[in-house]
């Protein structure tokens, strides 16, 4: 194998980006969804990706753990380049947790089983250790009393917090959030955002696709504005909110911040 050394994880040196995306392109048939995306994410960095629907922001973060396949360019996560090699994909998925818009909890398993499934069968921990850590995580997201319930018995906000705990249980180095609050009622958004803010403060590397601009302002290190498959503008929250350079960004911000 040409990239034998790169299949080992944890190969990132100090100061090197943990996620490197170079000229990433993707097509759905003739539709050019991603048109050359470049993004570097440092360890511990919190990245917020925003933009109009259909701009390719979800597709982009789904490429990072290979739920979608990019057709051109390079994506290197934690020193491992994503390729068709199944072992590389498995190695990257071990290090990358993901939270979906629709929660995607396993409805036939209890909250506890949802969280411990990965640690037991992928990380090969014994059941007691996995359950102990699952309880700690449930306490961290504020719902330890729900451990033996099924997802269908929980509110949307609680389900999303379980989903976050499930992703964290694998002890990932990176967390991806794909519009985690878009399917929630307004009063439940807050409880999920609080968990995410706490996670950001703890030093987790995060890429968050969201329209929650308050959250972005509070915790983002870097913001990327996507439109038509490209990064139109990026920078710190101050730069993007107060001094946007591009007209497209100004227009979009005025639309979502006006109400």
């Amino acid at each position: 194998m040409s990239n034998e050394s790169s299949t080992k994880s944890g190969a990132v040196k100090e100061g090197e980006p943990i996620i490197k995306c170079e000229e990433v392109h993707k097509w759905y048939g003739n539709f050019h969804v991603l048109r050359g995306v470049n993004m570097n994410v440092q360890k511990g960095e919190v990245v917020v990706v925003f933009g109009p629907s259909g701009s390719g922001k979800s597709t982009f973060i789904r490429c990072i753990n290979r739920l979608e396949e990019h057709q051109k360019g390079h994506i290197i996560v934690d020193g491992i380049e994503l390729s068709h090699d199944v072992r590389n994909i498995a190695a990257i998925r071990k290090e990358v947790g993901m939270v979906f818009q629709q929660f995607n909890l396993f409805p036939h398993l209890t909250v506890m089983q949802n969280i411990t499934l990965g640690p037991i069968y992928v990380r090969k921990w014994n059941k007691d250790k996995a359950e102990e850590i699952a309880m700690q995580l449930l306490e961290r997201v504020g719902i330890p009393e729900q451990a033996q319930k099924y997802p269908g018995q929980l509110s949307g906000g609680q389900q999303q917090r379980v989903a976050i705990a499930r992703a964290l249980a694998m002890q990932p180095k990176i967390m991806l959030f794909d519009e985690p609050t878009s399917a929630l009622d307004p009063e439940m958004i807050k409880e999920v955002l609080e968990v995410m803010e706490e996670l950001a403060e703890s030093g987790m590397t995060m890429i968050v696709v969201t329209h929650e601009m308050g959250f972005a302002r509070a915790v983002a290190d870097t913001m990327y504005f996507f439109d038509e498959g490209q990064i139109v503008e990026s920078g710190s929250p101050e730069e993007v909110f107060l001094h946007p350079q591009e007209d497209r960004t100004k227009l979009f911000l005025s639309q979502i911040l006006s109400h």
């Binding site: 396993f106 036939h108 992928v122 694998m170």
Partner: peptide
């Protein structure tokens, strides 16, 4: 079974057969 269940199982890191045995088949058969 919705696509999200397959994706969630992938993201948790389950292998192909683990995904079938633990996630997909129990729901599909039920």
């Amino acid at each position: 079974i919705p696509k999200g269940q397959y994706e969630a199982a992938d993201v948790v890191g389950l292998s192909g057969w683990q995904k079938m045995v633990f996630i997909i088949l129990p729901q599909a058969l039920r």
